[in-house]
Amino acid sequence: MDNIITTERLTKKYKRFTAVDGVSLHIRRGSIYGFLGPNGAGKSTTMKMLLGITAPTAGSFSIDGRHFPEDRTAILKGIGSLIESPAFYANLTGRENLDILRRILELPKDTVDDALELVGLTEAGNRLAGKYSLGMKQRLGLAGALLGRPPLLLLDEPTNGLDPSGIHEIRSLIQSLPERYHCTVMISSHMLSEIERMADDVGILNHGRLLFEGSLEELRCYAGGQGKPAGGLGKSADGGAAAYLQPGGVRLEDVFLAMVEQDNAAGKRRAE
């Protein structure tokens, strides 16, 4: 299969604490990959390793057949990223910020307006980024990631801080990207319904370990086979049962909660 990112038992330790533990991911070219996990699961850390911001303690990965650190420039030129909170120069306007990125990436001038247009920030482009609202900063960060339409996007909670219509808008945008221009998106989010609607494949992380990786369909079968949603019913008796009764209507949320819960219980047993 044609994978743009493959990681091989990727591990990151901070002193004694293991943030990412032997994670092997396979991200198909042209797909939208939903990266899920509770707070502190290690999603951001994994994405940072893929960007070369932190070095893995063990394991390896390749992006489009290239490796860090020897191909750093080539890899980073092809990745648009938004990690955790958006980052920008507060003393520059939105447009000037993108222009700095454009110059670093050596892209043509019109890419700035294109990116502003994509995220709906054209009108606010000439205002200081430091004075933007949270949602506008998020959009600016996203515009920075989309600048020049790179073949790979790493988006860490891109809809954080957006209003409902903004979430809808950005979701539609991200969903349309692989068709608009052939790109691959790796996206982490806590909005499971979001991921369910746009992702092709998902990876579920808990305490740094990969619990599941595969397509949404596979996840439904897997969950059905293991009876996982039933395990989660005690917690979400409302929608869980109803959804389970509909044919093929297992909700990602229930599967996710049950899977994490079961793993946490298993973890506790191991610790005892």
Partner: peptide, 17 residues
């Protein structure tokens, strides 16, 4: 300070510079 204030230093780390 300007480099750290809005987190721009973090963004620069993920760019080919």
């Amino acid at each position: 300070h300007m480099e750290f204030q809005g987190g721009a230093a973090k963004k620069m780390a993920a760019l080919p510079v």
